[in-house]
């Protein structure tokens, strides 16, 4: 049946940290809560775990209300940003802790720990202590501890943010594969939109405590509900031009830079180019506005060259200049 948030609000002192959040999560989905720091995504996760109380509203797991159910009885597993490995226990004891607490017998525990360790390729580390492990290894131990139990859902709080860039990409892939194999509902918190796009079956974008949009990654990218979502998702981010009654947005890949003028093309000057290796980012100035365009790797242009821009008009997004709400884009 899944997980449901119904009009959930959380206030700390006077400040409203989560504002009237409603979400329905289906069994087996990989949901990502995406947003900048302070947007309330971690607080939402912690309310689901029972580590924060709910100020108003209700949370349901498999149809049953859990507001009053203490953390230890919710049958969820969590991977913390800091991994929260027990420093005084060995890796095997760390992984086996949830089973020990449920009074499984020793032999049973050991078997399951070994199985999970094999799955994550950390068998050789079972007798060591957390302080002897590298960041990537600790992260896998934290994962192992979460999956050893077969809980109702996995909660993950920015688990990859402490890893270096290369390891992060590698672990991203392994996480996705793992979730696919295990099929358990996962709720994943991050501020990294690339992680959200690549991992999620659906993304919930949040800002300042409010849900902005809850949709598949592709829909979020192509049909953003408001300016915030449009700007937050996509790298480099969408270009915006403020007009009198509307804000227009166009993604960098929908701008083509031409060396010769043509019908309908806009005049512009090259501000600077960034050669990324696999593509080139072209920074342009059009009147008072700055735009970014994506061009293939072999694109070259000198600074201050006059160029012309072909814009795919059907890809222009239109937003209300005051509320930021999306108006249907021009067909």
């Amino acid at each position: 049946m899944g997980i449901e948030f119904r009009n959930v609000t959380k206030t700390f002192g006077g400040a409203c940290v989560v504002d009237d959040l409603s979400l329905e999560i289906r069994d087996g989905e990989f949901i990502v809560l995406l947003g900048p720091s302070g947007c309330g995504k971690t607080t939402t996760l912690r309310m689901l775990a029972g580590l924060e109380s709910v100020t108003s509203g209700d949370i349901f797991i498999d149809g049953g209300p859990v507001n009053d159910v203490p953390t230890q009885h919710r049958d969820l597993a969590m991977v913390f940003q800091s991994y929260a490995l027990y420093p005084h226990m060995t890796i095997a004891e760390n992984i086996g802790y949830p089973l020990r607490v449920r009074k499984l017998d020793k032999a049973d525990r050991a078997a399951r720990v070994r199985r999970v360790a094999a799955m994550l390729e950390i068998e050789s580390l079972l007798d060591r202590k957390p302080r002897q492990l590298s960041g990537g290894e600790r992260q896998r131990v934290a994962l192992a501890r979460a999956i050893v139990r077969e809980p109702r859902a996995y909660l993950m709080d920015e688990p990859l943010s402490n890893l270096d860039a290369r390891l992060r990409v590698q672990m991203r892939g392994e996480l996705k594969r793992l979730q696919h194999e295990l099929g358990t509902t996962t709720i994943y918190v991050t501020h990294d939109q690339a992680e959200a796009m690549t991992l999620a079956s659906r993304v919930a974008v949040m800002n300042k405590g409010r849900l902005q949009q809850f949709d598949t990654p592709l829909k979020i990218y192509n049909e953003p509900a408001n300016r915030f979502v449009a700007e937050f998702v996509g790298s480099p981010s969408m270009n915006f031009i403020e007009r009198e009654h509307v804000t227009e947005g166009i993604r960098p890949e929908h701008i083509q830079v031409l060396s010769t003028p043509e019908d309908g093309a806009i005049e512009a000057r090259v501000y600077v180019t960034e050669l990324m290796g696999n593509e080139t980012f072209v920074f342009l100035s059009v009147g008072d506005n700055r735009l970014i365009a994506r061009e293939p790797a072999d694109f070259r242009a000198d600074v201050d060259t006059k160029v012309w821009l072909r814009i795919a008009t059907e890809k222009i997004h239109r937003f209300d200049p005051v509320t930021g709400e999306s108006q249907k884009h021009i067909k």
């Binding site: 609000t9 206030t11 109380s53 100020t55 108003s56 009053d68």
Partner: peptide
Amino acid sequence: PRSRRFFNA
């Protein structure tokens, strides 16, 4: 929210 929170079960 304050008073409701205090008497919440």
